[in-house]
């Protein structure tokens, strides 16, 4: 047990250590990223304030609770930049160049390697700003935040990370069949923008789509509600269930794709 944990930690250390320093050579990126985070945050707050002008609200949420949604969105976006985007875009390249073979011959789960091989530091500003905004919005919350709801909220956040990861990975897996699929991730990204705002602000048909078809509700709205202590245990249960289901789908779909790869490639 200890050896296994040590093995994975050591592997992760080397995964992320390499490449980190070379990324930092692109100094322009540092400034661009910091300005982009500030700019996007200002813009988002500006849009939110417009929704709340003249005493109006967004889907019945207080401004402060909408901030919680926005903070979780910013945090998840940072994770996407750090892990999902850099790693999963490589799957397409591995398939194109035939270097997937090398990864399949490594004595490590190929899904683990493909998902975590690279750590790109450019998402860190978003992650930090997201966490800061989350703490700020929770500290100003009208209702009292209990330790229980923080604990459950963190679980919900983990579940939303798992769902987000699975969506990306499932999409990236299809590159085994369709090499040009990478552009489809742009579509996914553009849809996920809907998670910037509370789900109840959408018309009912879209709300159903964003809950059951493309679970955007579980990415930002449900964790926010849980943090504030306004969610039902049904949604907590549903979120965990969705997390498990999507993760399992991503694992089995990857295995299925590999079976196809190993029996069809030459």
């Amino acid at each position: 047990m200890y050896r296994t944990i040590h093995y994975y930690l050591n592997t992760l250390y080397w995964f992320w250590y390499t490449g980190f320093s070379s990324e930092l050579e692109y100094r322009l990126n540092v400034y661009v990223e910091i300005f982009a985070v500030i700019g996007n945050l200002t813009g988002s707050l500006f849009v939110l304030s417009m929704f709340y002008s003249n005493g109006s609200t967004l889907g019945g949420w207080t401004f402060n609770n909408s901030l919680t949604v926005l903070s979780i969105y910013t945090f998840l976006e940072g994770l996407t930049t750090c892990f999902l985007h850099p790693n999963l875009s490589r799957i397409v390249r591995h398939v194109q160049h035939g270097t997937l073979d090398y990864i399949l011959l490594k004595p490590i789960q190929s899904q683990l390697w493909l998902s975590l091989r690279i750590f790109s530091p450019w998402g860190i500003p978003s992650i930090l700003v997201g966490i800061a905004l989350l703490i700020y919005s929770l500290s100003r919350s009208a209702s009292l935040i209990s330790y229980m709801s923080i604990f459950l909220g963190i679980i919900m956040l983990l579940s939303s990370i798992v769902i987000l990861y699975s969506l990306w990975f499932i999409l990236a897996t299809t590159s085994i069949w369709f090499v040009k699929v990478w552009n489809a991730t742009e579509v996914l990204r553009s849809l996920l923008v809907a998670g910037r705002y509370p789900i109840s602000a959408y018309p009912s048909m879209l709300r159903a789509v964003f809950t059951f078809l493309l679970p955007i509700a579980f990415l930002t709205s449900v964790p926010s509600e849980v943090f504030i202590g306004q969610s039902s245990s049904f949604y907590v249960f549903l979120s965990i269930l969705f997390g498990c289901i999507f993760l399992l789908i991503s694992i089995f779909f990857w295995r299925y794709a590999l079976r196809f790869y190993t029996s069809a490639s030459s």
Binding site: N10, W14, F15, G19
Partner: peptide, 20 residues
């Protein structure tokens, strides 16, 4: 087909392989 990462020194890729 190469497994070494294009933008990194080979040593980095070696240590990743060693860990794996």
């Amino acid at each position: 087909k190469q497994q070494l990462i294009w933008d990194l020194p080979p040593l980095d890729s070696f240590f990743v392989n060693a860990a794996v």
